[in-house]
Amino acid sequence: MTGIVKWFNADKGFGFITPDDGSKDVFVHFSAIQNDGYKSLDEGQKVSFTIESGAKGPAAGNVTSL
Rank of each mutant, 00 (worst) to 15 (best):
M1R: 11
M1V: 10
M1H: 12
M1W: 09
M1Q: 11
T2C: 08
T2N: 06
T2P: 04
G3L: 01
G3F: 01
G3S: 00
G3N: 00
I4L: 08
I4S: 09
I4F: 11
I4H: 09
I4T: 14
I4K: 12
I4Y: 11
I4G: 03
V5S: 00
V5W: 01
K6G: 03
K6Y: 04
K6F: 04
W7L: 04
W7N: 03
F8W: 14
F8H: 01
N9Q: 06
N9G: 04
N9L: 07
A10T: 13
A10D: 08
A10E: 08
A10W: 11
A10Y: 13
A10K: 15
D11Q: 15
D11N: 12
D11V: 15
D11E: 14
D11L: 15
D11I: 13
D11H: 14
K12N: 06
K12S: 08
K12V: 09
K12Y: 11
G13V: 01
G13E: 02
G13W: 02
F14H: 05
F14V: 06
F14K: 02
F14M: 06
G15M: 02
G15V: 02
G15H: 00
G15K: 00
F16Q: 04
F16P: 00
I17M: 02
I17D: 00
I17E: 00
I17P: 00
T18C: 15
T18N: 05
T18R: 13
T18M: 12
T18F: 06
T18L: 12
P19Q: 03
D20G: 06
D20H: 08
D20F: 08
D21E: 06
D21K: 06
D21C: 09
D21R: 05
G22C: 09
G22T: 04
S23V: 05
S23G: 14
S23K: 07
K24E: 12
K24F: 09
K24Y: 09
K24H: 11
D25T: 05
D25Y: 04
D25F: 03
D25E: 10
D25M: 06
V26P: 00
V26H: 02
V26G: 00
F27T: 02
F27Y: 10
F27Q: 02
F27A: 02
F27E: 02
F27M: 03
F27R: 03
F27H: 02
F27S: 02
F27K: 02
V28D: 00
V28T: 03
V28W: 02
H29K: 03
H29P: 03
H29M: 04
F30H: 11
F30I: 12
S31W: 07
S31M: 08
S31E: 05
A32T: 07
A32Q: 11
A32Y: 04
A32I: 03
A32S: 11
A32H: 07
I33G: 03
I33H: 03
I33P: 02
Q34C: 13
Q34V: 15
Q34D: 10
Q34F: 09
Q34T: 13
Q34K: 13
N35F: 13
N35C: 15
N35V: 13
D36I: 10
D36F: 10
D36S: 12
D36Y: 11
G37K: 10
G37R: 09
Y38G: 10
Y38K: 14
K39T: 08
K39Q: 10
K39C: 11
S40F: 13
S40E: 07
S40D: 06
L41D: 01
L41M: 05
L41P: 02
L41G: 01
D42S: 15
D42R: 14
D42N: 14
D42Y: 15
D42C: 15
E43K: 15
E43V: 15
E43F: 12
E43W: 14
E43H: 14
E43D: 10
E43L: 13
G44K: 05
G44Y: 05
G44L: 04
Q45S: 10
Q45Y: 05
Q45E: 13
Q45I: 08
K46A: 10
K46S: 08
K46R: 13
V47S: 00
V47T: 02
V47N: 00
S48V: 11
S48E: 09
S48M: 13
S48I: 12
F49Y: 11
F49I: 02
F49G: 01
F49R: 00
T50L: 08
T50R: 08
T50M: 09
T50C: 09
T50G: 04
T50Q: 09
I51M: 12
E52A: 10
E52C: 11
E52W: 09
E52H: 13
S53A: 14
S53F: 15
S53R: 09
S53D: 13
G54S: 14
G54T: 15
G54V: 06
G54C: 10
G54N: 11
A55W: 12
A55H: 13
A55E: 12
K56H: 13
K56D: 08
K56T: 09
G57T: 05
G57D: 04
P58M: 11
P58L: 12
A59L: 12
A59D: 04
A59Y: 15
A59V: 14
A59M: 15
A60Y: 02
A60L: 02
A60F: 02
G61W: 11
G61I: 15
G61P: 02
G61Q: 14
N62C: 10
N62R: 10
N62Q: 11
N62Y: 10
V63M: 02
V63K: 01
V63F: 01
V63C: 03
T64D: 05
T64P: 01
T64I: 14
T64F: 08
S65Q: 12
S65M: 15
S65R: 14
S65N: 12
S65G: 11
S65D: 10
S65A: 14
L66I: 14
L66C: 09
L66P: 07
